[in-house]
Design a protein around this nucleic acid. Structure first.
Lengths: 216, 216
DNA sequence: CATAGTTTGTTATGCAATTCACAACGTTAC
DNA sequence: GTAACGTTGTGAATTGCATAACAAACTATG
Protein backbone atom coordinates (compact mmCIF):
# COMPACT_ATOMS: atom_id res chain seq x y z
CA UNK A 1 0.00 0.00 0.00
CA UNK A 2 1.68 3.22 1.09
CA UNK A 3 5.36 3.70 0.54
CA UNK A 4 7.30 2.76 3.63
CA UNK A 5 10.38 4.92 3.65
CA UNK A 6 12.97 5.54 6.33
CA UNK A 7 11.04 7.72 8.75
CA UNK A 8 12.35 8.63 12.17
CA UNK A 9 10.49 7.73 15.37
CA UNK A 10 10.26 11.43 16.14
CA UNK A 11 8.47 12.06 12.88
CA UNK A 12 5.93 9.31 13.58
CA UNK A 13 5.35 10.75 17.03
CA UNK A 14 4.63 14.16 15.55
CA UNK A 15 2.30 12.69 12.94
CA UNK A 16 0.45 10.91 15.72
CA UNK A 17 0.06 14.23 17.50
CA UNK A 18 -1.15 16.02 14.35
CA UNK A 19 -3.67 13.24 13.87
CA UNK A 20 -5.09 13.73 17.33
CA UNK A 21 -5.25 17.50 16.95
CA UNK A 22 -7.11 17.09 13.66
CA UNK A 23 -9.64 14.74 15.21
CA UNK A 24 -10.35 16.98 18.19
CA UNK A 25 -11.87 20.03 16.62
CA UNK A 26 -9.13 21.97 14.86
CA UNK A 27 -10.49 24.27 12.20
CA UNK A 28 -13.94 22.88 12.80
CA UNK A 29 -15.59 25.97 11.37
CA UNK A 30 -13.82 26.10 8.01
CA UNK A 31 -12.95 22.44 7.69
CA UNK A 32 -9.47 23.52 6.68
CA UNK A 33 -6.23 24.19 8.56
CA UNK A 34 -2.92 25.93 7.84
CA UNK A 35 0.45 24.44 8.61
CA UNK A 36 1.20 27.26 11.02
CA UNK A 37 -1.99 26.55 12.99
CA UNK A 38 -1.09 22.91 13.46
CA UNK A 39 2.46 23.98 14.25
CA UNK A 40 1.36 26.24 17.07
CA UNK A 41 -0.86 23.61 18.65
CA UNK A 42 1.80 20.92 18.37
CA UNK A 43 4.59 23.17 19.59
CA UNK A 44 6.76 22.85 16.47
CA UNK A 45 7.60 25.05 13.48
CA UNK A 46 5.38 25.40 10.42
CA UNK A 47 8.15 24.16 8.19
CA UNK A 48 8.37 21.05 10.33
CA UNK A 49 4.68 20.36 9.85
CA UNK A 50 4.84 20.76 6.07
CA UNK A 51 7.91 18.59 5.86
CA UNK A 52 6.33 15.84 7.92
CA UNK A 53 3.21 15.91 5.77
CA UNK A 54 5.28 15.90 2.60
CA UNK A 55 6.59 12.47 3.55
CA UNK A 56 3.23 10.82 3.08
CA UNK A 57 1.95 12.23 -0.19
CA UNK A 58 0.71 15.74 0.29
CA UNK A 59 -2.83 16.93 -0.03
CA UNK A 60 -2.76 20.64 0.72
CA UNK A 61 -3.54 23.47 -1.64
CA UNK A 62 -1.73 26.80 -1.57
CA UNK A 63 -3.49 29.68 0.13
CA UNK A 64 -6.20 27.46 1.63
CA UNK A 65 -4.18 24.97 3.61
CA UNK A 66 -5.15 21.38 4.22
CA UNK A 67 -8.54 19.72 4.34
CA UNK A 68 -8.90 18.62 7.94
CA UNK A 69 -10.76 15.41 7.21
CA UNK A 70 -8.59 14.37 4.28
CA UNK A 71 -5.34 15.03 6.12
CA UNK A 72 -6.60 13.23 9.18
CA UNK A 73 -7.49 10.20 7.11
CA UNK A 74 -4.16 10.13 5.34
CA UNK A 75 -2.27 10.30 8.63
CA UNK A 76 -4.38 7.56 10.17
CA UNK A 77 -3.96 5.32 7.14
CA UNK A 78 -0.23 5.91 7.20
CA UNK A 79 0.32 5.27 10.89
CA UNK A 80 -2.09 2.38 11.32
CA UNK A 81 -3.04 -0.78 9.52
CA UNK A 82 -6.60 -1.00 8.14
CA UNK A 83 -7.62 -3.55 10.78
CA UNK A 84 -5.72 -1.86 13.58
CA UNK A 85 -3.04 -3.57 15.64
CA UNK A 86 -3.72 -5.48 18.82
CA UNK A 87 -1.97 -4.77 22.10
CA UNK A 88 -1.35 -6.63 25.35
CA UNK A 89 -0.49 -5.18 28.75
CA UNK A 90 1.59 -7.07 31.31
CA UNK A 91 1.39 -6.01 34.94
CA UNK A 92 -1.88 -4.64 36.28
CA UNK A 93 -0.55 -2.41 39.06
CA UNK A 94 -1.35 1.27 39.42
CA UNK A 95 0.38 2.19 36.20
CA UNK A 96 -1.14 -0.70 34.31
CA UNK A 97 -4.60 0.26 35.52
CA UNK A 98 -4.03 3.86 34.50
CA UNK A 99 -3.19 2.75 30.97
CA UNK A 100 -6.19 0.43 30.83
CA UNK A 101 -8.37 3.37 31.82
CA UNK A 102 -6.83 5.53 29.11
CA UNK A 103 -7.79 3.03 26.45
CA UNK A 104 -11.22 2.11 27.72
CA UNK A 105 -12.27 5.74 27.79
CA UNK A 106 -13.41 6.64 24.28
CA UNK A 107 -10.32 5.39 22.56
CA UNK A 108 -9.80 7.46 19.43
CA UNK A 109 -6.98 5.31 18.15
CA UNK A 110 -7.13 2.21 16.02
CA UNK A 111 -5.02 0.33 18.52
CA UNK A 112 -6.94 -2.20 20.58
CA UNK A 113 -5.84 -3.22 24.05
CA UNK A 114 -7.28 -6.72 23.99
CA UNK A 115 -5.51 -8.59 26.79
CA UNK A 116 -3.92 -8.01 30.17
CA UNK A 117 -1.67 -10.31 32.20
CA UNK A 118 -0.81 -10.49 35.88
CA UNK A 119 0.39 -12.96 38.47
CA UNK A 120 -2.07 -11.98 41.21
CA UNK A 121 -4.96 -14.44 41.35
CA UNK A 122 -7.44 -11.80 42.44
CA UNK A 123 -6.99 -10.03 39.11
CA UNK A 124 -6.80 -12.90 36.66
CA UNK A 125 -10.07 -14.12 35.19
CA UNK A 126 -11.74 -10.79 35.76
CA UNK A 127 -12.50 -8.13 33.19
CA UNK A 128 -10.85 -4.80 34.07
CA UNK A 129 -11.93 -1.70 32.17
CA UNK A 130 -13.25 -3.80 29.34
CA UNK A 131 -10.10 -5.88 29.08
CA UNK A 132 -9.77 -9.48 30.23
CA UNK A 133 -6.94 -10.25 32.63
CA UNK A 134 -5.18 -13.59 32.15
CA UNK A 135 -2.62 -15.42 34.28
CA UNK A 136 0.98 -15.26 33.06
CA UNK A 137 1.07 -18.91 32.02
CA UNK A 138 -1.43 -18.23 29.25
CA UNK A 139 0.57 -15.40 27.73
CA UNK A 140 2.00 -17.33 24.81
CA UNK A 141 -1.33 -18.89 23.86
CA UNK A 142 -3.38 -15.73 24.17
CA UNK A 143 -0.93 -13.57 22.24
CA UNK A 144 -0.86 -16.01 19.37
CA UNK A 145 -4.59 -16.60 19.35
CA UNK A 146 -5.44 -12.89 19.55
CA UNK A 147 -2.81 -11.98 16.97
CA UNK A 148 -1.14 -9.45 19.26
CA UNK A 149 1.92 -7.61 17.94
CA UNK A 150 2.57 -4.95 20.59
CA UNK A 151 3.23 -5.35 24.32
CA UNK A 152 3.21 -2.88 27.20
CA UNK A 153 5.42 -3.76 30.16
CA UNK A 154 4.29 -2.33 33.49
CA UNK A 155 5.80 -4.90 35.83
CA UNK A 156 8.42 -4.30 38.55
CA UNK A 157 11.95 -3.74 37.32
CA UNK A 158 13.32 -7.09 38.45
CA UNK A 159 10.98 -9.10 36.22
CA UNK A 160 10.90 -6.72 33.25
CA UNK A 161 13.56 -8.55 31.23
CA UNK A 162 11.95 -11.96 31.56
CA UNK A 163 8.59 -10.40 30.69
CA UNK A 164 10.11 -8.95 27.55
CA UNK A 165 11.62 -12.33 26.66
CA UNK A 166 8.24 -14.00 27.07
CA UNK A 167 6.48 -11.40 24.93
CA UNK A 168 9.06 -11.68 22.18
CA UNK A 169 8.94 -15.47 22.23
CA UNK A 170 5.19 -15.26 21.76
CA UNK A 171 5.62 -13.13 18.64
CA UNK A 172 5.46 -9.53 19.80
CA UNK A 173 7.66 -7.18 17.71
CA UNK A 174 7.11 -3.88 19.49
CA UNK A 175 7.37 -3.10 23.20
CA UNK A 176 6.50 -0.07 25.26
CA UNK A 177 8.64 -0.53 28.36
CA UNK A 178 7.54 1.40 31.43
CA UNK A 179 9.90 -0.39 33.81
CA UNK A 180 13.10 1.42 34.80
CA UNK A 181 15.52 -0.94 33.07
CA UNK A 182 17.16 -0.98 29.65
CA UNK A 183 15.86 -4.12 27.99
CA UNK A 184 18.14 -6.36 25.96
CA UNK A 185 16.21 -7.45 22.86
CA UNK A 186 16.99 -8.76 19.37
CA UNK A 187 17.44 -6.11 16.69
CA UNK A 188 14.18 -6.86 14.92
CA UNK A 189 12.17 -5.88 18.00
CA UNK A 190 11.42 -2.20 18.50
CA UNK A 191 11.48 -0.88 22.07
CA UNK A 192 10.41 2.50 23.36
CA UNK A 193 11.14 3.34 26.98
CA UNK A 194 8.89 5.36 29.23
CA UNK A 195 11.05 5.96 32.26
CA UNK A 196 9.36 8.34 34.66
CA UNK A 197 12.33 8.75 36.98
CA UNK A 198 14.64 9.72 34.13
CA UNK A 199 12.09 12.13 32.72
CA UNK A 200 11.56 13.72 36.08
CA UNK A 201 15.27 14.12 36.80
CA UNK A 202 15.69 15.73 33.39
CA UNK A 203 12.88 18.16 34.11
CA UNK A 204 14.35 18.97 37.51
CA UNK A 205 17.74 19.69 35.95
CA UNK A 206 16.42 22.14 33.38
CA UNK A 207 13.98 23.64 35.83
CA UNK A 208 16.98 25.46 37.27
CA UNK A 209 19.25 25.96 34.27
CA UNK A 210 16.51 27.28 32.00
CA UNK A 211 17.18 25.32 28.87
CA UNK A 212 15.22 24.93 25.63
CA UNK A 213 12.01 23.05 25.00
CA UNK A 214 12.26 19.40 24.11
CA UNK A 215 10.04 16.44 24.61
CA UNK A 216 9.59 12.78 23.79
CA UNK B 1 27.04 22.31 40.89
CA UNK B 2 27.74 25.13 38.42
CA UNK B 3 26.46 24.74 34.90
CA UNK B 4 29.50 24.16 32.73
CA UNK B 5 27.97 24.58 29.30
CA UNK B 6 24.91 23.85 27.23
CA UNK B 7 24.02 20.19 27.69
CA UNK B 8 21.19 18.57 25.82
CA UNK B 9 18.16 16.99 27.50
CA UNK B 10 19.12 13.69 25.95
CA UNK B 11 22.53 13.84 27.56
CA UNK B 12 21.02 14.51 30.97
CA UNK B 13 18.64 11.60 30.50
CA UNK B 14 21.52 9.29 29.73
CA UNK B 15 23.50 10.52 32.71
CA UNK B 16 20.51 9.84 34.89
CA UNK B 17 20.40 6.31 33.55
CA UNK B 18 24.13 5.75 34.09
CA UNK B 19 23.68 6.98 37.64
CA UNK B 20 20.98 4.45 38.34
CA UNK B 21 22.96 1.61 36.79
CA UNK B 22 25.95 2.51 38.93
CA UNK B 23 23.86 2.53 42.10
CA UNK B 24 22.27 -0.84 41.40
CA UNK B 25 25.16 -3.22 41.49
CA UNK B 26 27.23 -2.71 38.35
CA UNK B 27 30.78 -3.97 38.74
CA UNK B 28 30.03 -4.72 42.36
CA UNK B 29 32.84 -7.23 42.53
CA UNK B 30 35.68 -5.06 41.28
CA UNK B 31 34.28 -1.67 42.22
CA UNK B 32 35.19 -0.51 38.75
CA UNK B 33 33.42 -0.40 35.40
CA UNK B 34 34.39 0.03 31.74
CA UNK B 35 32.65 2.39 29.36
CA UNK B 36 31.60 -0.52 27.18
CA UNK B 37 29.95 -2.24 30.12
CA UNK B 38 27.85 0.79 30.96
CA UNK B 39 27.18 1.20 27.26
CA UNK B 40 25.76 -2.28 26.92
CA UNK B 41 23.52 -1.91 29.94
CA UNK B 42 22.28 1.50 28.85
CA UNK B 43 21.81 0.51 25.23
CA UNK B 44 24.18 3.11 23.77
CA UNK B 45 27.69 3.08 22.29
CA UNK B 46 30.85 3.10 24.38
CA UNK B 47 32.01 6.32 22.77
CA UNK B 48 28.73 7.90 23.78
CA UNK B 49 29.29 6.96 27.40
CA UNK B 50 32.83 8.33 27.45
CA UNK B 51 31.75 11.54 25.80
CA UNK B 52 28.88 12.06 28.21
CA UNK B 53 31.19 11.50 31.16
CA UNK B 54 33.80 13.80 29.65
CA UNK B 55 31.34 16.66 29.91
CA UNK B 56 31.44 16.66 33.68
CA UNK B 57 35.13 16.40 34.46
CA UNK B 58 36.42 12.93 33.81
CA UNK B 59 37.67 10.54 36.40
CA UNK B 60 38.53 7.32 34.61
CA UNK B 61 41.91 5.72 34.25
CA UNK B 62 43.05 3.85 31.14
CA UNK B 63 42.90 0.09 31.27
CA UNK B 64 40.94 -0.01 34.54
CA UNK B 65 37.91 2.04 33.68
CA UNK B 66 35.96 4.14 36.13
CA UNK B 67 35.57 3.88 39.87
CA UNK B 68 31.92 3.03 40.37
CA UNK B 69 31.43 5.01 43.57
CA UNK B 70 33.34 8.07 42.40
CA UNK B 71 31.57 8.23 39.06
CA UNK B 72 28.22 7.71 40.69
CA UNK B 73 28.85 10.58 43.06
CA UNK B 74 29.99 12.92 40.31
CA UNK B 75 26.90 12.20 38.25
CA UNK B 76 24.60 12.72 41.22
CA UNK B 77 26.27 15.98 42.17
CA UNK B 78 26.01 17.16 38.60
CA UNK B 79 22.37 16.29 38.04
CA UNK B 80 21.04 17.29 41.43
CA UNK B 81 21.37 20.13 43.88
CA UNK B 82 22.94 19.33 47.25
CA UNK B 83 19.62 19.71 49.06
CA UNK B 84 17.59 18.01 46.33
CA UNK B 85 14.68 19.64 44.54
CA UNK B 86 11.10 19.41 45.68
CA UNK B 87 8.27 18.17 43.50
CA UNK B 88 4.48 18.45 43.48
CA UNK B 89 1.99 16.20 41.74
CA UNK B 90 -1.38 17.43 40.52
CA UNK B 91 -4.13 14.90 39.87
CA UNK B 92 -4.31 11.79 42.03
CA UNK B 93 -5.96 9.40 39.58
CA UNK B 94 -4.56 6.03 38.63
CA UNK B 95 -1.51 7.49 36.97
CA UNK B 96 -0.90 9.92 39.81
CA UNK B 97 -1.11 7.12 42.33
CA UNK B 98 1.30 5.03 40.31
CA UNK B 99 3.85 7.83 40.39
CA UNK B 100 3.33 8.37 44.12
CA UNK B 101 4.02 4.69 44.64
CA UNK B 102 7.19 4.87 42.56
CA UNK B 103 8.58 7.58 44.77
CA UNK B 104 7.49 6.21 48.12
CA UNK B 105 9.15 2.89 47.39
CA UNK B 106 12.84 3.20 48.29
CA UNK B 107 13.40 6.34 46.30
CA UNK B 108 17.01 6.36 45.19
CA UNK B 109 16.81 9.86 43.79
CA UNK B 110 17.37 13.15 45.52
CA UNK B 111 14.07 14.45 44.25
CA UNK B 112 11.37 14.65 46.90
CA UNK B 113 7.70 14.39 46.06
CA UNK B 114 6.40 16.50 48.93
CA UNK B 115 2.86 17.50 47.92
CA UNK B 116 -0.09 16.25 45.93
CA UNK B 117 -3.19 18.13 44.78
CA UNK B 118 -6.64 17.01 43.74
CA UNK B 119 -10.19 18.30 43.53
CA UNK B 120 -11.87 15.21 45.02
CA UNK B 121 -12.71 15.81 48.68
CA UNK B 122 -12.22 12.16 49.59
CA UNK B 123 -8.54 12.48 48.72
CA UNK B 124 -7.64 15.90 50.06
CA UNK B 125 -6.45 16.06 53.64
CA UNK B 126 -5.28 12.48 53.59
CA UNK B 127 -1.73 11.21 53.32
CA UNK B 128 -1.23 8.97 50.28
CA UNK B 129 1.96 6.92 50.04
CA UNK B 130 3.70 9.25 52.42
CA UNK B 131 2.61 12.36 50.58
CA UNK B 132 -0.03 14.78 51.79
CA UNK B 133 -2.88 15.57 49.38
CA UNK B 134 -4.13 19.16 49.36
CA UNK B 135 -7.16 20.76 47.71
CA UNK B 136 -6.45 22.76 44.58
CA UNK B 137 -7.14 26.11 46.21
CA UNK B 138 -4.05 25.71 48.40
CA UNK B 139 -1.72 25.09 45.49
CA UNK B 140 -0.15 28.50 45.36
CA UNK B 141 0.45 28.68 49.11
CA UNK B 142 1.82 25.16 49.48
CA UNK B 143 4.16 25.43 46.50
CA UNK B 144 5.65 28.65 47.83
CA UNK B 145 5.88 27.45 51.41
CA UNK B 146 7.43 24.10 50.47
CA UNK B 147 9.79 25.70 47.96
CA UNK B 148 8.64 23.45 45.13
CA UNK B 149 10.23 23.96 41.71
CA UNK B 150 8.95 20.99 39.71
CA UNK B 151 5.38 19.94 38.93
CA UNK B 152 3.90 16.72 37.57
CA UNK B 153 0.60 17.06 35.71
CA UNK B 154 -1.60 13.95 35.77
CA UNK B 155 -4.99 15.57 35.36
CA UNK B 156 -7.49 15.05 32.50
CA UNK B 157 -6.60 16.73 29.22
CA UNK B 158 -9.25 19.42 29.40
CA UNK B 159 -7.85 20.96 32.59
CA UNK B 160 -4.15 20.41 31.88
CA UNK B 161 -3.50 23.90 30.53
CA UNK B 162 -5.08 25.69 33.48
CA UNK B 163 -3.20 23.39 35.84
CA UNK B 164 0.04 24.33 34.13
CA UNK B 165 -0.83 28.02 34.39
CA UNK B 166 -1.49 27.66 38.10
CA UNK B 167 1.77 25.81 38.71
CA UNK B 168 3.77 28.39 36.78
CA UNK B 169 2.08 31.27 38.60
CA UNK B 170 3.07 29.67 41.88
CA UNK B 171 6.71 29.58 40.84
CA UNK B 172 7.29 26.19 39.25
CA UNK B 173 9.88 26.27 36.44
CA UNK B 174 9.83 22.65 35.29
CA UNK B 175 6.82 20.52 34.35
CA UNK B 176 6.43 16.85 33.56
CA UNK B 177 3.21 16.77 31.57
CA UNK B 178 1.46 13.41 31.39
CA UNK B 179 -1.75 14.78 29.87
CA UNK B 180 -2.23 14.34 26.12
CA UNK B 181 -2.05 18.01 25.17
CA UNK B 182 0.75 20.31 24.05
CA UNK B 183 1.02 22.92 26.79
CA UNK B 184 1.56 26.59 25.97
CA UNK B 185 4.08 27.95 28.46
CA UNK B 186 6.52 30.88 28.68
CA UNK B 187 10.01 30.22 27.35
CA UNK B 188 11.66 30.15 30.76
CA UNK B 189 9.62 27.12 31.83
CA UNK B 190 10.89 23.70 30.80
CA UNK B 191 8.29 21.13 29.80
CA UNK B 192 8.74 17.45 29.11
CA UNK B 193 5.80 15.50 27.73
CA UNK B 194 4.97 11.93 28.60
CA UNK B 195 2.26 11.03 26.13
CA UNK B 196 1.40 7.35 26.35
CA UNK B 197 -0.84 7.27 23.30
CA UNK B 198 1.80 8.82 21.08
CA UNK B 199 4.46 6.46 22.41
CA UNK B 200 2.24 3.47 21.85
CA UNK B 201 1.33 4.48 18.32
CA UNK B 202 5.00 4.94 17.54
CA UNK B 203 5.80 1.50 18.90
CA UNK B 204 2.96 -0.02 16.89
CA UNK B 205 4.22 1.60 13.70
CA UNK B 206 7.77 0.29 14.05
CA UNK B 207 6.56 -3.06 15.30
CA UNK B 208 5.73 -3.82 11.68
CA UNK B 209 8.29 -1.85 9.68
CA UNK B 210 11.25 -3.04 11.73
CA UNK B 211 13.09 0.18 12.27
CA UNK B 212 15.99 1.14 14.52
CA UNK B 213 16.13 1.46 18.28
CA UNK B 214 15.31 4.83 19.78
CA UNK B 215 13.81 5.97 23.03
CA UNK B 216 12.90 9.02 25.05
C1' DC C 1 -7.65 39.21 -17.46
C1' DA C 2 -4.12 40.70 -14.72
C1' DT C 3 -2.27 41.66 -10.28
C1' DA C 4 -1.53 41.17 -5.35
C1' DG C 5 -1.22 38.37 -1.54
C1' DT C 6 -0.66 34.00 0.85
C1' DT C 7 0.50 29.32 1.46
C1' DT C 8 2.32 25.08 -0.10
C1' DG C 9 6.15 21.76 -1.60
C1' DT C 10 10.91 21.28 -1.79
C1' DT C 11 15.54 22.25 -1.95
C1' DA C 12 19.49 24.17 0.38
C1' DT C 13 21.71 25.56 4.50
C1' DG C 14 23.11 25.17 9.23
C1' DC C 15 23.50 22.98 13.48
C1' DA C 16 23.72 19.53 16.88
C1' DA C 17 24.74 15.02 18.15
C1' DT C 18 26.70 10.59 17.39
C1' DT C 19 30.28 7.80 15.64
C1' DC C 20 35.03 7.15 14.11
C1' DA C 21 39.73 6.98 14.84
C1' DC C 22 43.85 7.43 17.25
C1' DA C 23 47.33 9.26 20.42
C1' DA C 24 48.34 9.03 25.30
C1' DC C 25 48.57 6.40 29.15
C1' DG C 26 48.22 2.84 32.75
C1' DT C 27 48.66 -1.94 33.70
C1' DT C 28 50.39 -6.43 33.41
C1' DA C 29 53.55 -10.08 32.15
C1' DC C 30 57.92 -11.60 31.79
C1' DG D 1 62.95 -2.65 32.84
C1' DT D 2 60.50 -3.13 28.82
C1' DA D 3 57.28 -4.65 25.62
C1' DA D 4 52.54 -5.74 24.62
C1' DC D 5 47.85 -4.99 25.43
C1' DG D 6 43.57 -2.53 26.53
C1' DT D 7 41.12 1.52 27.76
C1' DT D 8 40.52 6.39 28.14
C1' DG D 9 40.07 11.18 26.32
C1' DT D 10 39.27 13.86 22.41
C1' DG D 11 39.74 16.04 17.72
C1' DA D 12 37.77 15.03 13.13
C1' DA D 13 34.32 13.12 10.15
C1' DT D 14 29.76 11.94 9.52
C1' DT D 15 25.15 11.49 10.05
C1' DG D 16 20.66 13.09 10.99
C1' DC D 17 17.40 16.65 12.00
C1' DA D 18 15.45 21.21 11.98
C1' DT D 19 15.38 25.81 10.27
C1' DA D 20 15.49 28.90 6.52
C1' DA D 21 14.47 30.21 2.00
C1' DC D 22 12.23 30.34 -2.33
C1' DA D 23 9.74 29.04 -6.64
C1' DA D 24 5.26 27.39 -8.00
C1' DA D 25 0.47 27.59 -7.38
C1' DC D 26 -3.95 28.96 -5.93
C1' DT D 27 -7.46 32.46 -4.49
C1' DA D 28 -9.39 36.85 -4.47
C1' DT D 29 -10.27 41.21 -6.34
C1' DG D 30 -11.24 44.80 -9.47
Amino acid sequence: MSRRQAVSPKCISRLSLYGRLLSTGVGSTSGRVYSHELARLAGVSAAQVRRDIMGLGCSGTPNTGYDVQALGSIITEYIHTPEGQRVALVGVGNLGKAILTYFSHGSKTRLRLVAAFDTARDKTGRVLHGCRCHPMEEMSDVIRRENITVGIITVPADVAQQTADALINAGVTGILNCAPVALQVPARVYVENLDITIKLETVAFFARSGRPQADG
